[in-house]
Design a protein around this nucleic acid. Structure first.
Lengths: 134, 134
DNA sequence: TCTTTCTCCTATTGACATAGTAGGTTAAAG
DNA sequence: CTTTAACCTACTATGTCAATAGGAGAAAGA
């Protein structure tokens, strides 16, 4: 299940794509438009900055800006950054400890196929597809 | 992310399909074969009984039996029973409180499509496809 | 009948994640 | 040099996960 962090982050990215007119977009404005506490958004946007998806500008006239064009962001990378993983089961996570049943596991192919399905869907989908054009 | 409950339940169902020879299969045997604590499996199997996926028989010679043929169980119904939902986001759960952004939500179609994708994949897949034939 | 072998039931627990809140400090523009 | 905004550290309530513990009740075989 995708948490608020992943869902809110996506809405922030969409908001940035919709409202950035060359100028940085202040978090306060995003919080108001989206109806999400600014304090909580700070945590989320920090992750987006650390993940190199957006850039922050301090001071008056500051705010956040996208680093690429909306069509160059996949939904998958946004969500995966926030959630840590898209894997449907623990054993398919990147840092998963090796499962002793790995070689004989009957259910593994099922989870792998599901993982692939979700991954493909979310990485093929671009941010630009969710942006309401003004 | 699918929890141990869902994954273990699936393994129990597979174990039942593989080892049931007209006789009930004791939980002790399943626990040993699968390397899962019998105590924990009791919780899981109780959910399977309540969900009418298996039947329990008390007393000596007792154990658990499938109520249908393996090809008549979809993986989806097993996992969904254990997890409560397959929905990727809270607002798509059956008992979800109505979201005030429902009508205008830009991300909703994305989650709906993802939900459909996962649902279709897991419901089309049958238990019989995971059973090792002796 | 009595013992064994099972299922079935209630309660508890440690660890961790989620979804925030609170209160400040630093950076930059005007 | 004041305003505005990002940035940083810490804290906390609540809930879920993944079990464990200790039995009671049901049914079959000796």
């Amino acid at each position: 299940m995708i948490s608020t962090k992943g869902r809110y982050a996506l809405r922030v990215m969409i908001d940035l794509a919709e409202n950035e007119k060359g100028q940085p977009v202040p978090l306060k404005d995003i919080a108001e438009r989206q109806g999400i506490s600014k304090k909580y958004l700070e945590i989320i946007v920090k992750d987006l900055v650390d993940g190199k998806l957006v850039k922050g500008a301090s001071g008056k006239g500051g705010g956040y800006v996208l680093l690429r064009k909306p069509e160059e962001y996949s939904i998958g990378e946004i969500v995966e950054l926030m959630e840590g993983t898209l894997a449907p089961v623990a054993c398919l996570q990147k840092d998963a400890e090796e499962c002793p049943r790995y070689a004989s596991c009957v259910t593994l192919p099922l989870w792998q196929e599901l993982d692939q399905l979700v991954h493909d869907y979310l990485y093929q989908k671009k941010l630009s597809e969710l942006v309401r054009k003004a």
